[in-house]
Design a protein around this nucleic acid. Structure first.
Lengths: 84, 84
DNA sequence: CCCTATTTGTTCGTATGTATT
DNA sequence: AAATACATACGAACAAATAGG
């Protein structure tokens, strides 16, 4: 019974663009409760470091989640997981 | 009875970001029937030249209209005024 | 209240990939 | 095959809002 290992990185050689991959990763993290509703997502700068993408790419990923209503952003404050 | 002259350019010193100004300009143009429904908007490159903004900024303006359902974009083809 | 660091918003320029014409 | 057009990425820069001491 070997557990399935899921790679949690961004693959720049994939057909799926990095910003969509990162959005998917963040969606999964939120679905698993980390970060929890009301809690902040990592900053764009942190996402850049953690996933090896440009800061602008990280922002684009978060913007996608914002458009989906999954997160709410406060300018200068951060992006937070929506509660409802 | 002097007609009101409306400036149709992007002001980089305005509080309103250029991409929003350009989106408003294009909205007005579409509302006035130019371009007409089904017709193509100027390309991002043309918008760059006509309004003095970066191509990426022009794309962001068009993306806004796309999100509003005002235009439809065909990759490699162009952006067209929605018909309904 | 002030100063500083952090964080998001936006722009620009450049480069590459992919689809259309 | 070539030119045009959209999609995406990266890096650098500055503004504006926020957070913390």
């Amino acid at each position: 019974m070997s557990a399935t290992v899921r790679r949690v990185t961004v693959d720049h050689d994939s057909a799926v663009p990095p910003y969509r991959q990162l959005a998917a990763i963040l969606r999964d993290r939120i679905a698993s409760g980390d970060p929890a509703p009301g809690a902040a997502l990592p900053s764009a700068k942190t996402l850049r470091q953690e996933y090896g993408v440009a800061e602008t790419t990280a922002r684009k990923a978060v913007a996608l989640l914002r458009d989906e209503g999954l997160v709410e952003t406060i300018m200068g404050g951060g992006s937070f997981v929506a509660k409802h």
